[in-house]
Amino acid sequence: MTGRLRVLVADDQALVRDGFCVILDAQPDMTVVGEAVDGAEAVCAARELRPDVVLMDVRMPVMSGIAATAEICADTEARVLMLTTFDIDEYVYDALHAGASGFLLKNMRRAELVSAVRTVAAGDALLAPSVTRRLIAGMIDRSAPVPAAAPSLAALTARETETLRLVAEGLSNLEVAARLHVSEHTVKTHVSNMLAKLHLRDRVQAVIAAYESGLVVPRRHPHSRE
């Protein structure tokens, strides 16, 4: 991506919102182009300002962050980074399913916030693969069976399907490369082709598709707190 990253910050708490804006605006490669105090305002601002990344609080008045994320991801090219107070928020799966590229805890460090915005803007999922797998598997495991409208993987080649399976199981590109005995560049190509064929935004959405299609079955951990 060229030029400065355009960021929109949506949070109903003024102190939190101001803090994020100060941190991000101080970066040499970022500009905060707007702020929003609720989900509806965030949607309008995203449509008008066309940011690269939207920091979106999960819980906001008028329109929830989840509903706003769905509209923003459907109407713009912005990538949404959800903000939550809890490690495993009950709404995180819904947020990712709505199109978010990941989530951050509000008690993150300054460097983590800056790095996260850059990561999402570059088109990558925010979460480490193993964390993504644990989070989404846990949400699906406790919430619902495979939906009737599960995504079809028929368009994928055998190697792309296997790459998707390994990504969903929590392997990084380097680990997938080692498992398939190919270069990391080849894996990146497979991932890129797979995302394009399935019309997915990033790895988080790919993991969701893998679980919802039945390609990967969530593992139950009876003694886990997730």
Rank of each mutant, 00 (worst) to 15 (best):
V62A: 14
A67Y: 03
M63V: 10
A40C: 02
R59A: 11
A128E: 15
L153W: 00
V92D: 12
V62G: 08
G170D: 00
A40H: 07
G65N: 11
L171H: 08
L135S: 06
L55D: 07
A122G: 10
E71Q: 15
L49F: 12
G123V: 09
E77K: 14
L171A: 09
L96G: 04
R142T: 12
L153F: 00
V117K: 06
Y93W: 13
R118T: 03
E162G: 03
R118K: 04
G39R: 09
A121Y: 03
S143H: 14
D38V: 05
P151C: 09
N107E: 09
S64R: 12
P151N: 11
R79Y: 08
A70N: 02
A95E: 09
T163D: 01
N173R: 07
E77Q: 15
L113N: 01
L166T: 00
L171W: 05
L135V: 08
T132N: 10
G102Q: 08
S64V: 02
A42D: 12
E35R: 15
A137M: 08
V117A: 07
N173H: 10
A116V: 02
V146C: 09
R165I: 02
V167Y: 11
M63N: 07
R133T: 10
R59L: 14
G99S: 10
Y93L: 15
E90L: 13
L49A: 05
S172I: 06
S172T: 15
N173Y: 10
G65F: 06
A36N: 11
D89H: 15
V114Y: 01
A95W: 11
D38P: 04
A154Y: 01
D52H: 13
L174W: 03
E162R: 14
C73A: 15
V43P: 06
S64G: 13
M63P: 00
V120D: 01
L55A: 08
I88P: 01
G138M: 04
A122Y: 03
E48N: 11
A68T: 09
V146M: 11
V37F: 03
R142W: 08
L81K: 01
D124Q: 14
A67C: 09
T163V: 08
S172N: 02
T85H: 09
R134G: 07
T119Y: 07
Y91P: 00
L105K: 00
A100N: 05
S152C: 05
A40Y: 05
S115L: 04
R133C: 13
V33T: 02
L166N: 03
R47E: 13
L113T: 00
E77L: 06
R165L: 03
V120C: 04
L164W: 11
E71T: 12
L164E: 03
T84F: 13
E77H: 14
V62C: 06
A45D: 09
A74V: 02
A122W: 00
L127C: 06
R133G: 02
K106G: 04
D52Y: 01
S152Q: 07
I72A: 10
T84V: 08
E41F: 00
